[in-house]
Design a protein around this nucleic acid. Sequence first.
DNA 1: TGTAAATACCTTGATATCAAGATAAATTAT
DNA 2: ATAATTTATCTTGATATCAAGGTATTTACA
Lengths: 171, 171
Amino acid sequence: MKAKQQKDAVDLILDQWERERPDLDVTPMGTLGRLKRSAALLQRRLDVVFAEFGMTLWEFDVLATLRRSGAPYCLAPTELFSTLMITSGTMTHRLKSLESSGLVERQANPDDARSKLVKLTDKGLDLINRTVEAHVDNIHGILAPLAGSDLQALDQGLVAMLGMLESADEK
Amino acid sequence: MKAKQQKDAVDLILDQWERERPDLDVTPMGTLGRLKRSAALLQRRLDVVFAEFGMTLWEFDVLATLRRSGAPYCLAPTELFSTLMITSGTMTHRLKSLESSGLVERQANPDDARSKLVKLTDKGLDLINRTVEAHVDNIHGILAPLAGSDLQALDQGLVAMLGMLESADEK
DNA sequence: TGTAAATACCTTGATATCAAGATAAATTAT
DNA sequence: ATAATTTATCTTGATATCAAGGTATTTACA
């Protein structure tokens, strides 16, 4: 039996539940708690770099989605908000903001008059190209302290988890 | 080389970056993307059960923190908002709301007049006791489809990840 | 060809959250 | 004992988000 080097915040939570409600098997809380807490701490680390480019995470998300779709960097709003897991109303606000910053522009959709396509401006393209490079550097640095075997285990587990959640979601 | 059964949403994103920016090693985006996306999909699954008890996730979080602290289920606001990773201002709003729902009550702190302690009411205690049981059932069910080895890998990876993030955070 | 149904947004109103600043009490250093 | 500093909240103002509902188009099909 290998002793854990140091208890993390979630270990303490599980200890408390174990003491208070020994009738419950709270093991899954450990998995989900660490997942959520890791996601929160990670976001803070990512925000630091985005801020250096005058951006927030949500702005990065939208611009990056357009960028990686390839030239001409142009998508319909529905494509964007379904990829980003946000509502259409939220997308409307984001696009208005990005448009007023001059990072995207709207143009008529020749195939469907209900939508106005969203396109990266030259300024938006340049910004996201530079930001994504710094972002990739950042996340390499963040994951660097992890042992290779831990990272490998994490990837294996997350692939299974996301696969499960997405297949449950489409039902 | 084992072929992946089915591509998830993050695989598609990585494919796009690979095509558009082959100069970047975007592997870490896969890990972080799945982590974030899993967290988002999980929250939806958890919300379903909380809603059955007339609660939201944030209400559950506060009440559960008080409950697992043990009798007399009473903590200072600072203890709560640091555990919950939210700001003091947000905590103020949450407590006001929970107090008006009759789930917590405030009382003077004999040791420190700057804070007013937060305590579960009988109603709050009963509600959280019942909700946490349903929640634990829920998360057991959610993780059930995962193969034991995948779950084990996930736990190993998340312990390493959170440990790394927390140690980086305290610096 | 017309209609009914579905789709693609956008608008509105309500929440939840945060950052920054204000206030009051406790602690620390003279 | 005082003054300076730190701590524990709460307040305020700005954002981001969602759910629900409205409008204009498109698609399905009788």
